[in-house]
Amino acid sequence: MLLSPVPMHIPDGFLSVLVSVVFWALSVVGVGYALKRVNEDLGERQVPIMGVLAAAIFAGQMLNFSVTGGTSGHLLGAALATIVLGPWAAVLVMTSVVGIQAVVFQDGGLLALGANIFNMSIVGVAVSYFTYKSMQRLLQQLVKDQPWSIPVSGFVAGWVSIFIAALACALQLALSGSSPANVAIPAMSGIHALIGIGEGLITAGALAFILAAQRDLLQPAAAPVGSHRAVWVGGLVIAVLLAILSPLASAHPDGLEWVAEQRGFLDLAQEPLYEIIPDYVLPGIGNEALATILAGVIGVGLVLAATLAVAYVRRRVQSVEV
């Protein structure tokens, strides 16, 4: 019931070690910088707000509305968190949500968590912020201070954030060689172009509600871009880069395949090891069938040992109770 219904949480086993490590590094840098900025800019009062609103976003992901047939609209919440809390706090909120989903509900892998945090917290928040602020400015020019400009900007930010985050996810899969680029990118972007509508609608509805009930909660996002120019530019760069890169990769899947096949430093690191331990040092294990049988035998032994251990402990406990 708590599983997030937005299919963007990559499980373990799909990303190559290189891709996992690179995106962990990017996420650590991004989240670390967000922590620094939150520590500097926001007061201690913000700590419970970030924690509880992360819980609210998490709970909000359970809400749904039927669209048509069996499909339904859902919320991921990156755009909503960004608009309500400002970009830095939103990165921490989404990181907390995505992290708990991975650790507690196995929604997204642990080694893949770096990539998932990158997609949903960093890309999601930066792109939301860029889109929301740009839309706000555009609408300001066009229609001045209309009350509906906030929900409308929220809708667009919600849609764009989901769409771009899905592209990032598809690229990571293609880079790892677990899904061909010419299938993964059109499929992920197609599905999420639809899911993004649900995201956008719920985001807009939530903003309209907050606007009517308690306008001052939207203060952080109302601040001028000045203080967060880096996020705005970051969102712009990520969105443009992914929007250009994806169709390219999709049209030339061989290019990505080639990158995936290289598997970077791991292959490089392997070469000398081969020289140190040549095949004939361990005769027999070189034989595939024999190795498999051996592994099977050791495996059965392991399982038997575990079963016996449990039975032994149970008997001990029972005899103590008697």
């Binding site: 009062r45 700590v47 419970p48 707000i49 924690g51 509880v52 609103l53 819980a55 609210a56 976003i57 709970a59 909000g60 809400l63 749904n64 509305f65 039927s66 669209v67 048509t68 609209g73 919320l75 909503l80 309500v84 649900g198 609608l201 719920i202 985001t203 807009a204 509805g205 939530a206 903003l207 309209a208 509600f209 907050i210 009930a213 308690q214 909660l217």
Partner: peptide, 28 residues
């Protein structure tokens, strides 16, 4: 309509956020 259903659900999400913000004040 779809828009109505989406708005009601969005309202619920907004409601959760406001309740969360109020609770955060009390927790603080």
């Amino acid at each position: 309509s779809l828009a109505w259903r989406a708005r009601v659900t969005g309202g619920m999400a907004g409601n959760l956020l406001l309740r969360g913000a109020d609770r955060a004040e009390r927790i603080y």
